[in-house]
Simulated assay, not measured.
Amino acid sequence: MVVRLHRVAGATLLLAAAALLASCADSPGASVPSVEGSWGDVSDSSAPSLDFAAGGRVSGTDGCNRLMGHWTQDGATVILIDMASTMMYCQEIDTWLSAAATAEIDGETLALFNENGDPIGTLQR
Rank of each mutant, 00 (worst) to 15 (best):
C90F: 02
M88S: 09
Q91L: 09
D62H: 04
V2C: 12
T86D: 03
T122Q: 14
P28Y: 01
V58C: 08
L112S: 00
G69A: 00
T86Q: 07
A54L: 10
D51W: 01
L14H: 01
L112P: 04
R57K: 08
D118Y: 00
G29L: 00
A30Q: 12
V32Y: 02
F52N: 11
L112E: 01
T102F: 04
D106H: 06
V42S: 15
G60E: 01
Q124H: 06
V32S: 10
L5A: 15
A11R: 10
R66D: 05
G75P: 03
L80N: 05
G117I: 04
L67E: 07
A76P: 13
S23A: 14
H70I: 02
T12M: 15
P28W: 01
G60R: 03
A53I: 04
V35A: 14
A53K: 13
L21E: 12
A54V: 08
M87Y: 06
T122H: 05
P119D: 06
T122L: 05
G69P: 02
F113I: 03
D44K: 06
M1H: 15
G63D: 03
A84G: 04
S23D: 11
M88W: 10
W96K: 08
R57V: 09
D26M: 14
Q73T: 12
D51A: 11
G69W: 01
A54S: 13
A16H: 06
S34W: 02
Q73M: 07
L5Y: 14
L13F: 14
E104S: 06
E108C: 00
G107P: 09
G40D: 01
L112F: 06
V78K: 07
L80G: 07
N116A: 14
E108S: 14
D26I: 10
A30L: 07
D106Q: 09
G55M: 05
W96Q: 12
M68I: 02
L110Q: 03
P33E: 10
T77W: 08
Q73N: 10
A103Y: 01
L80M: 08
A53F: 06
M1R: 12
S98L: 02
A9W: 02
I120W: 04
S46E: 09
A111I: 03
A9F: 07
